[in-house]
């Protein structure tokens, strides 16, 4: 039996979909079978991030309504063995699926796959409840901003009232130089305030935008710092006992020189 994990945040635009895509790919790179479920019905984007948008024939709602079998709707990623996407419907809305139906679909997927990652829509309404319904674990994505952390706190409260054991936090788009000069909230402060387990931190990285443009998640790009952070988080997610990814670790000869002379990009 595989694990069903929901990726959620409350606030929109903090990187849920990017996180789902990158963690899914990282787990597949590690040799796991992974199913990604886009639960953002009406506003699907996971297909774009993965570069699979041209291969969609059926979607989640088609499966629910019995127009096709689950296997027919799953898109297999040709770059990576073991990675599949169940796309959301684009022309329907959140009420097209019930929590019970989500539970059934995820249970069926969990029989075939080691990990089922459900990409939740923003908000705390039915779309979020559907996405979380089938999950036993939850990953909360936040950025180090007051607005995002506040919404994360709300979502943590709601998840704890559901059947989710301890939610785990990913802090995305961290800018170490800004943290150092005190213009960005400290990771420890956020953890302390939310009283939640920290799964990982991801640095702000221009490569993320480029990978979005190309439909190639950053974990496939060896030189992307954020990609490296996501690969690291995936290993922690599957239970490896690793310390947190070090955002400050200098990379390459140039990085070491920069650190020595105290010039760093922020």
């Amino acid at each position: 039996m595989g694990e069903v994990i929901v990726v959620t945040s409350g606030k929109g635009g903090v990187g849920k979909t990017t996180t789902t895509a990158n963690l899914g790919m990282s787990l597949a790179l590690l040799g796991h079978r992974v199913a990604l479920v886009d639960a953002d019905i009406g506003l699907r984007n996971l297909d774009i991030v993965l570069g699979l948008e041209n291969r969609i024939v059926y979607d989640l709602v088609d499966v629910v309504e019995g127009f096709c079998r689950l296997k027919q709707a799953l898109i297999k990623d040709k770059r990576l063995d073991g990675l599949s996407l169940l796309p959301a419907a684009q022309t329907r809305d959140k009420s097209a699926v019930s929590p019970e139906q989500m539970r059934n679909i995820c249970a069926e997927l969990a029989r075939e796959y080691d990990y089922v990652l459900v990409d939740s829509p923003a908000g705390i309404e039915q779309g979020f409840r559907n996405a979380a319904a089938a999950a036993r674990r939850a990953i909360i994505v936040s950025t180090p901003e007051v607005m995002a952390v506040r919404d994360a706190d709300r979502v943590i409260g709601l998840l704890e009232a559901m059947t989710i054991r301890e939610p785990e936090l990913i802090i995305n788009r961290v800018r170490p130089a800004m943290v150092r000069r005190g213009d960005m909230m400290d990771i420890d402060d956020i953890i302390d305030i939310l009283a939640i387990e920290l799964l990982g931190v991801v640095p702000e990285d221009d490569a993320m935008l480029v990978s979005g443009n190309r439909g190639e998640p950053a974990v496939l790009n060896g030189s992307s710092r954020a990609g490296e952070a996501f690969r690291h988080i995936a290993r922690r997610l599957r239970g490896e006992n690793l310390p947190l990814y070090d955002l400050e670790r200098p990379r390459g000869v140039l990085g070491r020189i920069r650190r020595l002379v105290g010039v760093e990009r922020g």
Partner: peptide, 11 residues
């Protein structure tokens, strides 16, 4: 520093 301010407002 605005990071501290953010923390206090958040709390």
């Amino acid at each position: 520093p605005s990071g501290l301010l953010a923390r206090e407002r958040l709390r």
